[in-house]
């Protein structure tokens, strides 16, 4: 069986030896995968926030979208990947306290997920990494598993639905 490595919030992992990378319980957080399809090496980050007030501290931190994309790219290049061959996929950025349950205004998280998604797209664009596919937004939490060997991002929604992008 293929080995699976589990990452937590604000962590990332680079899989060189055919492991898959898994993250549990993405709500408003986004999971961003970056990989080199030829080398079959890739990384996955569980991003908490779009950006930081303290930009210096955030530059290399996978807690933030720009930092996560930057560190993953750096390590992938270090591992011998070609920057212009890199592709990305992402999932997450949901609103976990949806309006159907919460008719009162100002529910938490309504924009948090969206802001994370926009920040991740921007960070990828800045590094010129094409976004091959995404499964974002909505009102359900997700468990995701990325397989760098195939580029497959498997999404298990809390509704029981499974999607592969």
């Amino acid at each position: 069986m293929r080995k699976s490595v589990r990452i937590k919030i604000s962590e990332y992992y680079l899989a060189k030896n055919g492991e898959t990378i898994k993250s549990y319980g993405l709500g408003s957080c986004v999971g961003v995968a970056v990989w080199d399809p030829k080398k079959k090496i890739g990384a996955l980050a569980h991003i908490l926030l779009p950006a930081s007030k303290n930009s210096a501290a955030a530059a290399n931190s996978a807690k933030y979208a720009p930092g996560a994309v930057a560190v993953m790219m750096e390590e992938l290049v270090e591992a011998g990947c070609e920057p212009r061959r890199l592709l990305a996929k992402m999932a997450g950025g949901a609103n976990i306290f949806p309006r159907r349950f919460n008719s009162c205004a100002g529910e938490p998280g309504a924009n948090l997920g969206r802001r994370n998604v926009l920040a991740a797209r921007k960070a990828l664009a800045r590094k010129k990494i094409p976004l091959a596919a995404e499964e974002v937004g909505g009102e359900t939490g997700r468990i995701i598993e990325f397989n760098p060997a195939t580029g497959e991002l498997r999404i298990y929604k809390s509704t029981g639905e499974v999607k592969i992008i």
């Binding site: 319980g25 709500g27 408003s28 359900t140 809390s158």
Partner: peptide, 19 residues
């Protein structure tokens, strides 16, 4: 606010707030 979802997903907005 009410949510019915994964524990890890429900805690997200709080961690974003604190983080």
């Amino acid at each position: 606010w009410f949510a019915f979802d994964l524990t890890g997903a429900i805690i997200d907005p709080i961690l974003i707030q604190l983080g």
